[in-house]
Design a protein around this nucleic acid. Structure first.
Length: 697
DNA sequence: ATTAGGG
DNA sequence: CCCTAAT
């Protein structure tokens, strides 16, 4: 299944440039390969950074609890509680209904949910605080079944991911930001802008598919969205006729591994009887590969990624590491780089454009009562270029005591398409989304300020001077997120300011039409009806086949499926041209090819290899390949050579130091013997040939 | 395209 | 496994 998520900040305001759909990655060499990883800034960091520009201002006025919105939080909690804990579990396994395989990711933003009519501004404010005050869980799942039957589900999805800006710290009250002194310049009135990041922090994701838990998110789910995502058939990995490995002729000559693998979908044949049976392609579907793009749905997400996400990601890795403490962290990371790479593409996208624009700024009166200032109430006069009320793009502004407090309800993130295999784990999904978000946000953003539709470029002006602090203008204050000058080589706005953080704002980007979906195949969602092909099983088989030798990191699961399914592809949306320019990072990433999945050699394979080498000798890997691994498409002669290399090494080290599936000592002995023998032969050859040639010469 | 080696 | 260099 593929998910295509559209991330948009709850704030309708901020828009990120559409990301060009990443081309299917062709394997190629990329110099940059894994280098950019660290360049990425996580969303949190980013936010923190942004926030950092503003000083925290005492407690949030709004922080007072309000009863309103209580329900939401409760729901949230609930869903949070149900959040799938087993990150490593394939999604399929969790799905309550097989037909329910479509996953809708719903990231909802409590506050900014526009669709709710009865959500009064005040309520929003209250809600936000409530919610915010507690650590939001990154992703929650909601019941997918709601009113929708399996069939219906297929149809109704629109998944929009909504991102809210959140701060790492859960504490809402402390979420205020204060403008840095430098921004406002040294002048007399130093206003503090308080941003109440409250609501934005909560993110809930409802995964309609497998995680059927609470139905609380239903309301949000229903939000009709114009976006249509294409659903593709999903490719399921399965083993086609592989010969039971057991048939492998042990010491006979000319042993060949018979498992047929097509590089992408193959399973190891270690344990013929068990592993492969589990998965049986259905007669009809059997041969078919499905590639489902969950995309069909729009996912509305307000990712409240928060620490949770990161934590999970990290912990997963750690777990993995712990289990296999022998494995270097680096290595584990490398096992699932594709995601990252793909993500980078997205990031680049975001950077390339003006990016994110925001609206929905609320200035909050300092006294803590949020008068009417919060929420959509004060509608933007339209002065602001793209006031999108939906997310609460309005800003309310109250100045008091020369203190300006404002709240930004949300930022909109550019649409992102994410493709992820059905059998991907929830954890990987989370990570994927997180990474996508991080990629976008991490690219480096700048904040621009709009007042009455005009960009305020002079960073040195005070709020007072610009009039921002004036009540009558509070409605016309807007913020934009722009690509940071630094990371992105290309600037849309030449006049870019060097380094100003706050006050300069390029023109606000056009907002994404809320719903204009992007998807290439507009109405495809319905195609999803293809029954899920018991992917879980097959997947399990795969996993099992090599898990013992080397458990794959969570991310691996994704890789295992089809190549197509791994891509996280930014989808071009409305205005694509803007994006044309690609930040360096992006290009780097996009160029990089995906690393092949790790497929530990089975004992049978090792035996075949040993036997072939015994006969052919080292240095004739091509022949070895043909002889013993002709049918194993995923084993190249280079692989065989490498394996031999490791076998020799393995044979030389103490058994305690070996890892992975243990290779019978007998085989290792043969390896050493053969290696010694052929090394000798090689040496002889050389001695012989050397003199020969010299003699000839 | 292969082979050999380092990473 | 990947990447390169050298065949």
């Amino acid at each position: 299944m593929a998910l295509q998520k559209r991330l948009d900040y709850g704030f309708n305001g901020y828009q990120v440039p559409p990301t060009p759909r990443a081309a299917r990655s062709v394997r190629r060499r990329c110099v940059f390969k894994r280098k950019a990883d660290d360049q990425q800034m996580c969303a949190f960091d980013l936010l923190a950074t942004v926030a950092g520009k503003l000083l925290l201002d005492g407690e949030s006025p709004v922080s007072a609890h309000t009863s309103c919105g209580k329900e939401q939080p409760a729901a949230l909690e609930d869903s949070i509680g149900k959040e799938a804990k087993d990150e490593n579990k394939p999604l399929e396994e969790k799905s309550c209904d097989r037909d329910c395989y479509e996953r809708n990711f719903l990231f909802t933003e409590l506050v900014s949910e526009a669709p709710k009519p009865n959500f009064c501004p005040d309520e929003l404010a209250c809600t936000q605080n409530d919610v915010v005050s507690r650590p939001a869980s990154g992703i929650t799942t909601s019941d997918c079944s709601e009113k929708v039957g399996p069939a219906e589900q297929l149809v109704n999805d629109d998944c929009k991911l909504r991102l809210g800006i959140f701060t790492p710290s859960v504490d809402v009250e402390s979420s205020g930001f204060r403008l840095p002194a430098n921004c406002g310049s040294e002048d007399e009135s130093r206003k503090q802008i308080k941003m109440d990041s409250a609501s934005t922090r909560n993110l809930s994701v409802s995964n309609k598919v497998s995680l059927c838990s609470s139905g609380n998110s239903e309301a949000w789910d229903r939000k009709p969205s114009a976006l249509v995502s294409p659903v593709d058939s999903l490719k399921f990995p399965f083993c086609r006729d592989h010969t039971p490995c057991g048939s492998f002729p042990g010491n006979q000559e000319n042993v060949k591994l018979v498992n047929r693998d097509d590089d992408e979908n193959s399973s190891e044949c270690n344990e013929p009887g068990t592993r492969n049976k589990a998965f049986k392609p259905q007669p009809r579907v059997g041969d078919r590969r499905f590639r489902k793009l969950l995309a069909s749905k729009h996912c509305k997400i307000t990712p409240n990624v928060k620490d949770d996400e990161r934590y999970n990601a990290d912990t997963e890795r750690c777990d993995y590491l712990n289990r296999k403490n022998n494995i270097k962290r680096q290595r584990s990371m490398r096992d699932y780089p594709f995601k990252k790479r793909k993500l980078y593409d997205c990031s680049s996208v975001s950077n390339s454009e003006e990016g994110v624009s925001s609206d929905g700024v609320c200035m909050v009166p300092e006294n803590g009562t949020n008068g009417g200032g919060l929420g959509p109430g004060p509608t933007l006069p339209g002065a602001i270029p793209n006031p999108t009320p939906a997310a609460g793009g309005n800003a309310s502004f109250h100045s008091r005591n020369s203190q300006v407090k404002l709240k930004i309800k949300s930022f909109r993130v550019p649409e992102l398409y994410i493709e992820i295999p059905e059998n991907a784990t929830v954890g990987s999904l989370k990570r994927t989304v997180l990474e996508a978000v991080n990629a976008v946000l991490g690219g480096g953003l700048r904040v621009g300020v709009l007042l009455q539709g005009k960009k305020i470029r002079d960073d040195n002006k005070t709020l007072l001077q610009t009039g921002i602090s004036q009540d009558n203008k509070m409605d016309t204050l807007g913020f934009t997120l722009e690509p940071s000058p630094t990371p992105a080589p290309i600037r849309l706005y030449p006049e870019d300011h060097r380094g100003q953080l706050l006050c300069d704002s390029p023109q606000p980007l056009a907002r994404y039409p809320p719903a204009p979906s992007i998807t290439q195949n507009g109405g495809q969602q319905r195609n999803l009806d293809t029954p899920p092909d018991l992917p879980g099983t097959s997947f399990n088989n795969f996993i099992e086949s090599d898990h013992d030798s080397a458990p794959s990191p969570p991310g691996m699961s994704l890789q295992r499926t089809t190549s197509e399914s791994k891509a996280l592809v930014p989808v071009p949306s409305t205005k694509q041209d803007a994006l044309a320019v690609v930040p360096l990072r992006k290009s780097k990433r996009s160029e990089s090819a995906q690393r092949r999945i790790r497929r530990p050699f089975t004992v049978a394979e090792v035996e075949a290899l040993v036997q072939a080498v015994e006969k052919l000798g080292t240095g004739r890997w091509r022949d070895v390949k043909l002889r013993a691994f002709d049918s194993a498409k995923h084993r190249t002669y280079v692989d065989l050579k490498d394996k031999w290399k490791t076998l020799v090494h393995t044979a030389r080290i103490s058994p305690q130091q070996r890892r992975g599936e243990p290779v019978p000592q007998e085989l290792l002995d043969r390896v050493l013997t053969a290696h010694a023998y052929w090394s000798q032969q090689q040496a002889k050859q050389q001695l012989k040939s050397q003199p020969d040639t010299s003699l000839l010469l």
